[in-house]
């Protein structure tokens, strides 16, 4: 389990946990980021915002938030 912030672009991640308050967890959830869901990391780096994609859906996550979303790197590769 690592924070999203440390995942390389191109990886596929599975969301495991959230290290933030209920309001922000709720916001993530409404946008479809829930435990167990899988996203591909389109862009992002430490201290930079991330874009997660799933089909045509794109979710932007700020640099600070990326440290609070805990994920598992499912399949590293292009």
């Amino acid at each position: 389990m690592v924070p999203l912030a440390f995942v390389e672009p191109g990886s596929v991640v599975e969301v495991l946990d959230f290290r933030c308050g209920s309001a922000c967890t709720c916001r993530l959830r409404e946008l479809g980021i829930v435990r167990g869901c899988r996203y591909r990391v389109s862009t992002g780096a430490v201290n930079r915002p991330f874009i997660l994609s799933n089909g045509e859906t794109r979710i932007g996550i700020g640099a600070g938030m990326a440290l609070k979303v805990m994920v598992k790197d499912v399949n590293h590769g292009g």
């Binding site: 922000c24 993530l28 980021i33 794109r58 932007g60 600070g64 938030m65």
Partner: peptide, 9 residues
């Protein structure tokens, strides 16, 4: 307000 936003197609 944390930045989490949908980036529409």
């Amino acid at each position: 307000s944390p930045l989490v936003m949908e980036l529409p197609a």
